[in-house]
Nucleic acid binder design. Structure first.
Lengths: 294, 294
DNA sequence: ATTATTGCATTAGGATACCTTATTCCCGCC
DNA sequence: GGCGGGAATAAGGTATCCTAATGCAATAAT
């Protein structure tokens, strides 16, 4: 019982002719004969009386034609269901983000996306990079934006925006000229916790310069970027932090940047997703929107 | 886009497994893989994420599954529609019949059929054999019961009941012993019209005996059997008529039978239908009921 | 770590169903 | 009786579908 047979049956019924049906379906007349015959054998009942000049459907055919048309319609519509679904850009979109992207990047980007697609409801889950990566690897989150690239074979990283780490000090700090990375390492430092992408990038920079992280003069660890900023403002020490996080403070003079002459402090943000999972349409649209530069 | 593909898709969705689906559908796992792949290519979207140990439907699959199940259900039901239809033995059943069957046979048989299937509405069209045969040949009637076999390549005859023509005379008639067919031919005769099966059978009998119908002493022609009977009772002459038509009159002595020693006056009734048309189910059931001896 | 186990993908082969062309058959119509 | 329209039949090629065997990746077990 194939959809083909049903299609042929319906066409013959419509035209009351095998050859007309063949024409409509771009088949030959013998093929149509064959399919009708196959259906008749399967149903164990004659569907058409083939008179010399005309073809007359039997009562059974008349009973079946409605059902046949319904089936054809449904099958035709099968593809279209997807089209409808794709057009409908609304729904609940959960995005994981590490601290910097979640706090200083996504609020702006989600706002602009929502201006384009107003019926989208965003939920931004903010945590540190390690936690977001784990959640994506573990299928708890479908998409995430993080500031570090940690080993995980489950996760696919796509470079997103550039960022730069800078060293910041309290406004009272007396800046020397031409400070290098090794000078920084001598100062008292306030840092984020272990899983932080910012911290990890800083560790990598130190490593490249041959400086052991253990030997830093770390005076406090905080679970949030804001806490770090507050601590620096209070004069606990300096910190190394995303330029994006302290843009406002630098502008109004609450913090000052320590320019470092010898280290490349650039870093990347990444859009991440599970390597094997297909993103739902809305999710994919958002990712593409971000990657295309919004 | 084949029904097969959809069936496989639905099964994989149900079991979240290609191999379980293969088992359910009595296919092999590669076949299932192939079909899913074909569907995915046709729809240009991934339907399942194949993780190592589990298969997870994508959002698109979730959207399609409802439609898929609806299609499958409809296709499964396609055959059953016929079953339902066949069970329903009710409706309007038009049967053509020549005079004798229509008057003396069908009333009894339709009554017994209706005791079995009470929701059938009979309509018996009575005319002479020629007219009924023409209507069946011309698709005006689907089924008929007649007392003569006339040439028509459109019509299929199935022998039904036996009948016997007998000669009847008014009660006042003075019977001689050992009357033969040639004696009958001498008497004044009352007859049915040209198209009558009874008349035609009588002509055939005469012909076999070498008697020319033109030489009969015909005194009246009537359009109905009852009229003939009345005429005989009134003493207009004798007649040759179906035994079934005069059963009651013979019993209560209103007519008397003239026994004829030398002629075989047996004849057949036939159930007829168009050679090329398929009978609707109710019609076929009734024909089978009659042919099976009720 | 190494080795099973599970589960999907891939490949090659053979059977089957499908479609086509050519031809025949049937019936109604000149 | 010959003609013509329309379906059935026959024969052949091809695409499809299925099986069996193998590959490959991710767990789970030793």
């Amino acid at each position: 019982m194939d959809i083909h047979h049903i299609r042929v049956f319906a066409s013959v019924y419509k035209h009351k002719s095998f050859s007309k049906a063949a024409e409509e379906l771009h088949l030959t007349q013998p093929t149509v004969s064959d399919h009708v015959k196959a259906l008749e054998e399967e149903l164990k009942c004659r569907l058409f009386d083939r008179l010399s000049r005309k073809v007359i459907p039997t009562r059974e055919a008349a009973v079946l034609i409605g059902r046949a048309q319904a089936i054809i319609e449904k099958v035709e519509g099968f593809k279209d269901v997807l089209g409808e679904f794709r057009k409908d850009l609304s729904g609940h979109l959960v995005v994981g983000a590490s601290t910097i992207p979640g706090t200083y990047i996504l609020p702006c980007l989600t706002a602009s996306f929502r201006r384009k697609y107003p019926s989208v409801l965003f939920e931004i889950v903010v945590s540190d990079s390690r936690a977001i990566i784990d959640k994506v690897a573990g299928d708890e989150l479908l998409i995430g934006i993080v500031g570090a690239r940690l080993e995980s074979r489950q996760v696919d990283y796509k470079p997103f925006l550039d960022d730069e780490l800078i060293a910041v000090a309290p406004n009272s700090f007396e800046m020397r000229k031409n400070m290098g990375i090794r000078d920084i390492a001598e100062l008292p430092i306030v840092m984020r916790e272990q899983g932080s992408g910012t911290r990890r990038e800083f560790e990598k920079i130190l490593e490249k310069e041959g400086i052991d992280f253990q030997h830093l003069n770390i005076v406090a660890l905080f679970g949030s970027t804001d806490a770090v900023k507050q601590a620096v403002k209070e004069g606990m020490g300096i910190s190394v932090i995303s330029r994006r996080a302290v843009k406002d403070e630098l502008k109004c003079g609450m913090l000052k940047e320590i320019r470092i002459k010898d280290a490349d402090m650039k870093r990347q943000f990444y859009i991440i997703n599970h390597r094997k999972r297909t993103l739902p349409h809305l999710c994919k649209m958002f990712a593409d929107y971000l990657l295309a530069g919004c």
